[in-house]
């Protein structure tokens, strides 16, 4: 492996990180939107958000990505590869995330909601000041898992010829013929990114817990 090839792989890693962050932002928005909708009082809202979740959990992220990239242009919308990738990953992982949000919202004791009602908080204040601060720490560990899944999912974008890590590795392999070395290196790079993501999420979890007075046990306690 020579210098220029390392530059190629590092550039690819940067695109991978960007793709992960964009998709994660979209997925988080979808997860909270759909997750809240699934706890709505109106049955039609619950039903429609349920259909969304079952649809995107039922299909394959890669097939969705190909559909957005190859089939959607035939309807007149041409998406750049990066956006097709972001959209497919964000929409599907958002569906998984919405289940996490729903579960965490439901795990907040009903008395908390009732107390907020008794104190005549508006619905928005109830959510913002009482429910979410208690629900968010619950969401962090499963969100971490989903974020790792999302990171692994970004490799699919290489099949749309987006210049992320796996795609650049393919170029490097074609130019050097060193398959074992190239793929070995990028596997380690993915692992390092996943490790950093996990550390950051643990930090956020500890912060979120501390903010509602649930200090985690000294030294991080559970793993």
């Amino acid at each position: 492996m020579t210098g220029p090839l390392w530059v190629l792989l590092l550039k690819g890693a940067w695109i991978t990180v960007q793709l992960m962050l964009y998709s994660a932002a979209l997925a988080a928005a979808v997860a909270f939107g759909i997750g809240l909708a699934r706890t709505s009082r109106l049955w039609i809202v619950r039903f429609l958000s349920g259909v969304y979740v079952e649809f995107f959990r039922g299909t394959s992220a890669l097939v969705l990505m190909f559909w957005l990239f190859f089939a959607l242009p035939l309807l007149g919308w041409q998406l750049a590869g990066l956006w097709a990738g972001t959209l497919a990953l964000g929409l599907s992982y958002g569906a998984y995330g919405s289940e996490v949000v729903r579960g965490a919202l439901q795990s907040v004791p009903a008395a908390q909601r009732e107390a907020a009602v008794a104190l005549s908080f508006s619905p928005w204040q109830r959510l913002r000041k009482v429910i979410l601060p208690q629900a968010v720490p619950e969401m962090m560990p499963p969100f971490n898992n989903l974020l790792i899944e999302l990171l692994k999912g970004t490799a699919l974008a290489s099949l749309l010829s987006i210049g992320e890590l796996t795609f650049e590795a393919k170029l490097a392999r074609l130019s050097t013929g060193e398959s074992a070395q190239v793929y070995g290196i990028i596997l380690v790079m993915y692992f390092v990114i996943a490790f950093v993501v996990t550390r950051v999420m643990r930090l956020l979890e500890r912060r979120a817990k501390a903010s509602v007075g649930q200090a985690s046990l000294a030294g991080g306690g559970h793993r």
Partner: peptide
């Protein structure tokens, strides 16, 4: 841990291109 935290697609490429060697 390593296999779980790295993409299946890359693992497939690894197996596909490296094992024959």
């Amino acid at each position: 841990e390593f296999v779980r935290n790295t993409p299946l697609l890359v693992q497939l490429f690894f197996l596909f291109f490296v094992l024959p060697g």
